[in-house]
């Protein structure tokens, strides 16, 4: 395959990914800036209590790409509901029942999907019921953080999902 890159144009590619019901998931892999800079990006996680970076910044995938596409590509929030429906996810109504491996989805005050991640540990404090999560912060890194410590605003609601069907 010959890849023609036009100078000054973002380099877009996409890969074929589908839901369990064989619906295509739109996606794109983008390098809008030089990859040589990635290692020089500061560690922003220090501004979030207890947060730690899991890897170096990587613009190829975003939070939805990490959560639903094995960190291979960037997926838009408009595909998320289709994935939840097609792949047999059920919402976990009771925060007490959240387990590692569950998907966390953040919603803004308009009810729009705003961010996502994967639960990696149960809440350590039974009173607060906030689990720890790994999520991809845009083009930046995967970050290990408390569920509510994210750089996205406004977060009006979080909901947890698990494949049950």
């Amino acid at each position: 395959m010959i890849v023609i890159h036009v100078p000054g144009k973002p380099n877009y590619k996409s890969i074929r990914i589908q839901t369990r019901c064989r619906n295509d998931i739109e996606n794109r892999q983008v390098y809008d800036f030089s990859a040589s800079e990635l290692s020089a990006i500061p560690d922003y996680s220090r501004d979030y209590r207890g947060a730690e970076l899991r890897n170096k910044p990587n613009p190829i995938y975003n939070c939805y790409g990490m959560t639903f596409a094995c960190a291979r590509t960037t997926v838009g929030p408009e595909s998320v509901q289709m994935i939840l429906d097609d792949d047999g996810y059920t919402e976990i109504q009771n925060a007490d029942e959240v387990l590692p491996g569950d998907v966390i989805i953040y919603y803004n005050d308009n009810g729009e999907i705003w961010h996502s991640g994967i639960v990696v540990s149960k809440p350590s404090d039974e009173r607060i019921k906030i689990p720890w999560v790994v999520s991809k912060w845009g083009k930046y890194s995967e970050v290990y953080h408390q569920a509510y410590d994210v750089p996205y605003r406004p977060i009006a609601q979080v909901r947890y999902w698990r494949i049950t069907k």
Partner: peptide, 12 residues
Amino acid sequence: KREYLFANTVEQ
């Protein structure tokens, strides 16, 4: 720069 890197979507 930080906002750009953190943005999951164009809306953000």
